[in-house]
Computed example of a mutant assay.
Amino acid sequence: MNPEKAKTFLTEDLGKEGFADVRIARADSIPQAAGRLRTFLAAGRHGTMGWMAETEERRGNPQKLWPEARTVVLAAMEYGPEDGNEPLAALERRDRGTISVYARNRDYHDVVKGKLKQAAGRFAAKTGEQVKVFVDTAPVMEKPLGAAAGLGWQGKHTNLVSRRLGSWFFIGAIFTTADLPPDEAETDHCGSCRACLDICPTDAFPAPYQLDARRCISYLTIEHAGPIPEEFRPAMGNRIYGCDDCLAACPWNKFAGAAREAKLKARDDLKSPAICDLLMLDDAKFRAMFSGSPIKRIGRNRFIRNVLIAAGNSGKAELAGDVAPHLEDPDPVVRETAHWALDRLKSAVQIKDLNSKAALTEGENSATQNRRKKSP
């Protein structure tokens, strides 16, 4: 099969598997990636994600990961919310937790990888070429490769942005020994827009196109295992797993919808779960609720830590009774976070009481003044 026909065969087959867009890059198309990764790691912006430093050489150069690879096929699967305003609107429901849109259904690693394997297997059988499939967990820099392939461009929030899909899509990669015709790289269409930078609640972007993961709520709630620094806790609001703010703010999302029927549908119970219910989860209940979900990967203790912070930020005094039992939790991080949450809730109650007293006093003073005015 000639290269053009092989490319068409694979692209069309991936489309049938539900991928909204498919583009091709050469395996040696991101020579600048290794230097950028080195700078990122040297600045310590990867935080506690030691595996990034451990796999630096392979991550920075696809051909170090698999020397025989000639081509990388990048496939995008849409997962955006049905209502584009919902991820931001949900932040106002302080008695409920907000889960990143991508994590509201089955683990995308399994979904995307399964579909990629099906198409890659048929391609290998048809062409006799070797293939390897990667989805996020392997040391592959999908975003620079996606930009080189023309799938999108890396926006100022460092995520890939597509003119067809906005910011809401997963990226899967097929490495192959086949020498397929590459697509043209995409150009940057961010212009002067700063929406994704300005909306970040923890100022995780030191500059456009740069991310300090140590300040990112997605990193803090998912990758970071210890206590979350107190300076970031108030800004987390009710975000209990990930953060979608920079994605949701992207103006290019208005053009998304090239493959609405293929996107993953959110589970109703994960759209805006009640904080009081989540605080009742022990390990067994946590595993049952999040079976097949990417949330299960962080474990019950880290998840409860996040929920306790959301409770502390809620301003809802009635949640104190749900927080209190965690003062005796076996996990020291959970116990410390529970103390912090209760202190926040007590402060919120005290402020509310002070405001009520102030309003009452003001009302009494107004009534007294009115009586005086009416006196002869």
Rank of each mutant, 00 (worst) to 15 (best):
P31Y: 05
V323G: 10
L360F: 10
L264W: 04
T176F: 03
G121Y: 03
P273I: 03
K64H: 15
Q118V: 15
A33V: 09
A310D: 13
A20D: 12
P273N: 06
T177E: 04
L342G: 10
R371Y: 07
A258V: 13
P3K: 08
S375P: 01
A33E: 11
R70W: 04
T11A: 10
P294F: 01
L74Q: 04
N85H: 13
V323E: 13
H339V: 14
G18S: 06
H189P: 00
E129H: 14
C243M: 03
A147S: 12
R104K: 13
M289G: 04
T187F: 08
L197I: 15
W66H: 08
H189E: 13
P3M: 10
C200M: 03
T48A: 15
W168P: 04
N370P: 01
S192P: 09
V73I: 15
G155F: 02
R26I: 04
W51Y: 15
A358S: 13
G226D: 14
S192L: 12
L270F: 09
A43P: 01
R214P: 04
K265S: 13
P81W: 00
K316D: 14
A310S: 11
P332H: 07
M77E: 06
D283S: 12
A225D: 12
K265R: 14
V112T: 08
A348E: 06
F303W: 05
C250A: 06
P144D: 03
H189S: 09
Y219V: 03
R297T: 12
I295G: 10
E184K: 13
D353H: 12
T137E: 05
R287P: 09
R305G: 02
L41S: 10
R372F: 12
L37Q: 01
A359I: 06
L345C: 04
F169M: 07
G292S: 10
H189C: 09
P87K: 00
A284T: 12
A119T: 00
C200R: 00
P208K: 06
N2Q: 10
L264C: 03
D331W: 04
S293W: 03
D331Q: 09
D212E: 06
I309L: 04
E142I: 12
A25S: 15
T98Y: 05
R38P: 01
G292W: 03
I228V: 15
E4H: 11
Q32V: 05
G155Q: 05
E86Q: 13
P144A: 03
C193W: 05
K263T: 13
V334D: 09
L308K: 01
T337A: 02
G191L: 07
L116A: 10
